[in-house]
Structures are given as structure tokens and as C-alpha cells.
Design a protein around this nucleic acid. Sequence first.
DNA 1: CTGAAAGCGCTAACAG
DNA 2: CTGTTAGCGCTTTCAG
Lengths: 337, 337
Amino acid sequence: MADVARASGVSVMTVSYALNRPERVAAHTRQRVLETARRLGYSGPDPRARSLRRRISDCLGVVLGEQLRYAFDNPMVTRFLAGISDELVQSGEALTIISTAGGDRDRDRVTAAAVDAFVVWSTATDDPALLAAIATGRPVVVQGGPQLPGTQCVSIDDRAAAYAITEAAFATSRRPAVLSFPLTQERTPGIGYGFDPGSTTYPVTEARLRGIADYCQARQISNDEVLVSVAARNDESHGREAARALLAQRPDAVMAMSDELARFLLEEASASGLRVPDDIAVTGWDDEPSAARLGLTTVAQDLRAQGAICARLALGRQTENPYAPWHVMHRTTTRGA
Amino acid sequence: MADVARASGVSVMTVSYALNRPERVAAHTRQRVLETARRLGYSGPDPRARSLRRRISDCLGVVLGEQLRYAFDNPMVTRFLAGISDELVQSGEALTIISTAGGDRDRDRVTAAAVDAFVVWSTATDDPALLAAIATGRPVVVQGGPQLPGTQCVSIDDRAAAYAITEAAFATSRRPAVLSFPLTQERTPGIGYGFDPGSTTYPVTEARLRGIADYCQARQISNDEVLVSVAARNDESHGREAARALLAQRPDAVMAMSDELARFLLEEASASGLRVPDDIAVTGWDDEPSAARLGLTTVAQDLRAQGAICARLALGRQTENPYAPWHVMHRTTTRGA
DNA sequence: CTGAAAGCGCTAACAG
DNA sequence: CTGTTAGCGCTTTCAG
């Protein structure tokens, strides 16, 4: 920029103005400056210097946890990112994806990101990456939860939705079961009767367990009658393993915490010759495209819309923040109430 | 940082060293500095100032063209991004997605991005966003093409692959046809006989048309005998429209430029009661998951691997850059040669 | 309408 | 091992 100023015989400030505030500089001067800039191959202000001075990066950071390292493989995450993208494209901000790797350096990755605000995908209450984002003092919006001081949270009412889908799953059931996400960051898989919502560090999982407990209470089912199989991860190998463990106990109704887990269960069930929903009712969560194909009864929520809302909140374009809408999509994997 | 220095009674440099070069500072001093930093809620060097000074952002920019604004909707793009992400996660760089919107400001979006290098998804030769990336003087790697001075290009040999897949598509054909991507940035749809590779501004499309022409020449088919239907966009409505226009002319073999276009054609063909491959042979391009389901003969390439290569080249971790591998995946939508 | 001064927060380079 | 100096490239503020 100094070069351009020298070459066009004006001060650096005039160049800056010519580039950023056309109205504050005479048309002919501006013309000359722009001309010189082009001639010298100057391609505009250095973004690093500019953002240091202006204290704005025009960039939104999205923090994706360890298990989402391959974010682009997960349809729900990509839908969420698409929603954020929708919002940013119009206004010209960029989107920086900060993938954490589960190590000590995750904190640094977040701290080192030159972004104006953070959007964090649902994580554990004590996730260091989330804490690092909060520590920067910049706005933090979390999808799903946790809801910590210094953050906003965009989410459906997981507890209410869990109640409703559990009702669809467990109707007429005598041997109800849950195919669950991990309860702690150790991601211990396992199977057994009973569950304690208070003992999980993932707020979304906790809320869903509470919803299940609410339903059980209404139906006068003890938590200890509910068989719970925990998948270490929401992926194929762990999912199938947890599904098989569950089926070995012959449940007649399974509330699965994601459409993917439900899909694995349906496939394993069909391989065992079980009829759905007569022998076993199954529900999912999210209503991803495969759910319609499978006839899966599931909780429908619009993650794309939630992505856009997260972006707007993070950038201060919106302040009100009610629960996002959801509904139970009744299909053919459940028995009518 | 100045506050931390003052509060711990050392110079700013010592704080900087304590944070960045643990080995250059006495253990106890470092301890004290870190302690003070924590106490003051100082969460590490300001990334903007640091990147200005170090001239490094630890961030790779990915430029996605206008038609990819909803990048996360497109499975090939997400696979490519996943590959880039694979490479970055290990070394801790972030990934900034710069979505262009097709307007004048696209240039600025690219120029304003604080990234160390650019990866650009296949675009037109005169795409302003690409030119802006090159103008920054930072490394630019383009997937697919164009191959301009100042850039590296990661791609399969589209021309050779087009020859091979056209051979699979057109074997025994008497009424060959192509279902093509747009030829120019105007994206004019249309249908007619003949094609001229030289007249398209999309290098990938051009290379494929050249491959088709090569095959026609080998078979002694004139380009003018080939029916070409151009889809304005690679999406459902435009794709179906172009497919229907093509079917109305009763081709017996169609080389489609993407699996998606091929899928629309197959669906329309089946709706018209055509048998595949007997009445009409169809080929796709990319071998996305749906291709296997459909039994689609297609060009298989690994975009995830190409993404990783783009990232490595852009960050200077790799210099050699041969054509990426590809092969024709023969399935059931084509007649044996 | 244009310019001079000051400094954003940090680190490279070089003393001590 | 620690400190001083200088300056990254820009824009805010205030004066002409």
C-alpha cells in the first residue's frame, strides 16, 4: 500500500480511503490510485493487518469436536454447516472450520483462530475446546448444548422430544430398550438395565434420557426395567455392535438416539428374521433422508435452519432465541398407540 | 499480553517466549507467567496480531464457486473437503471456506481472506475469484482445472477417462448422445447435434469433450452425429429437463457427465418404459455411492485423496504432482463391448 | 478533500 | 536466560 501511495504521489491514507471509502476521496484521485494499484499488481489491503487494526475478521469459526473430525462425512453436520453457510454467503463472511483432534492442543487451535465468533457443535460440558472459545471473550453459540454462562444455545427441547418419541417407541411395549449415545467422554460401550440421566456429561444425551425417564414415570415403568445399550460412537462398527448386543436380549421396542443407530438396528433385526414393528418397534432421531426410505418413525428437526440461527446469533444479527421446532414423524417402524 | 508482563514483573518478550518457546525461558519464570496469564484470564496471543507479525495464518482457504454455494449439499464436494480436512487436522491448521456468490464482490471475498494458500474447486478459466486468488501471490492449487500460470492443478486425466467411459457408453451404439455440463458461464441449456470442445470455458468439460471426440474419431463417428443435451446446472430440475429433452430424441447410449445427471436420465428412462442397457446404455462420472446402487457404469476417482493432495501441495508439503488415478467401473447400465 | 501521527498486539533480530 | 528495539500493514483520529 505504501508502494501504491508513493507511485501515485499521494499519502498512504488516501490509498486506504480510495479502497475503502470511495466517497471520501475525489473521483479523479481515486481513479488514479486504483489505476496505479492495478499496474503494480496490488491486490488490496492485507487481511491480517486490516483485521488487527479493525478488530474484525469477517469470519465465523465453527468448532467441530474430535469425533466429528470428518465432519463432512456426517449428513447432519453437513446440513448444519450448509445452514451457517446460507447465512454467511449473503453478507460475505467466510466460514472457518476448526477441527479438534482430542489432544492438548485443541485449546490452542481454538485460541489461534482469527474469527469474530464461534459456533460450537453439541459437545460435553467440560470440552476444553468449548471452554477455550468462551475464554476468548468472543460470542459463542452452541448447537444442542451445553448451555454455559457466556454462551447462547440453539436447540430443540430435547427432553420434550424424547418424551414424545419414546411414547411412539414404547407404546404397547413390554420389553423396552434404548440404543444410546455414549454417556461420558470415555465413551465406554456396554449394556445393562437402568439409566441415570444425571451421570452423563453430554447435555443432549442427558436431556433425552430425562425425557425417557419422564415417559417411564408417566407409564409407571421403572428406569430399571429399561434395557440400555450404549454405542461407543455413532458409527457403523460401534453402532452395529451395540445393536447386536441389544437384540440378543430380545427387546420389543427400541428408542435409538439417531437415525443411523436405528438403521443399524433395523438391519440387524431383519437379519435375525424379526418383523418390524410387530416383533420390535424402532425409532430414530433427526429424520435424515434415509429415515424416509426406511419408514423410520423419528424426531424431525431442521438442522439447516438451526445452523442459520446459530450464525445470526453469533454475529449479533438476532437476539431472541426460542427453542427450535421439532415434531415426531410417524412412519411404519412403530406400532400405533 | 502487556498486562500479563506487567503483572508478572517481566518484559513482554518473556511472556511471548513463555507462551511460544518454552525452552527459551527458565522453568520457574515460565510457571509464574503462565500462572499470571491464567489469573488474568488471558487466553493466548491475539491471532490477528500474531499472524500479521509472523506472516502465517495457519489456515488454508478453499474457494467454492457460485454454483457450489451450498457446498455441503454436494457429495463430491464434501468428500473433497473431507480429504482436505484429513490433511489439516493432523497439523492443526484450520480450513476457511470462501463461498463466492457470483457478484462483483467475489474478488474481495477472496482477497480479504486471511489464509496462507488457496485451494480452488474446478471452475472456469476466467473466474474472477480464481484470478483474485492468484493475484494475492499466495500458493493456489486448483482441483480439476484450469491450469493457469501461478497455479498447480490436481486432476485425473479427464480426456483419457472420457475416452474410456465413452467407449463403454457408445459400444454398439447407433444413436449416441451426451448429457453435458454447461459449456459457458452463461449456462445456456439446449440440445442439438455436434459439439466443439474448443468453445467451452470450463476446462474440465472441455477435456471431457475432447476425450469424447477422440473416441468418435477412432470409431469414425463424426461429432455431428452425436446428440448433445446441456443441463444448465448439475441439479435436479435442470438435470431432469435436459434428460427428458434427450430422451425425446431416442438415443440408444448416453454418456452423462456426472452420476447425478445419469441418475436423472435413468429415472426418466425407466418412467418411459425403456430397458437399460438394452434400449439405452448410460454412463456417469465420479462413482458416488448412489452409482453402486444403480448399477451405473461410471468413472471412479477418489476426490477425498485429491483433496488431501491439494492441501499438501498448497501448504508446500509435497511438490510432485502427477495425474490422480481413475478407472472405469463397469456395471450393468452398459452393454458389453 | 488530503495528510501526519499514533498504535492495533505481537514477534524477529539482536543485544546483554 | 531476559530485555530492547523495531516494525509487520493497516486504519482511527485528528489537523490541515
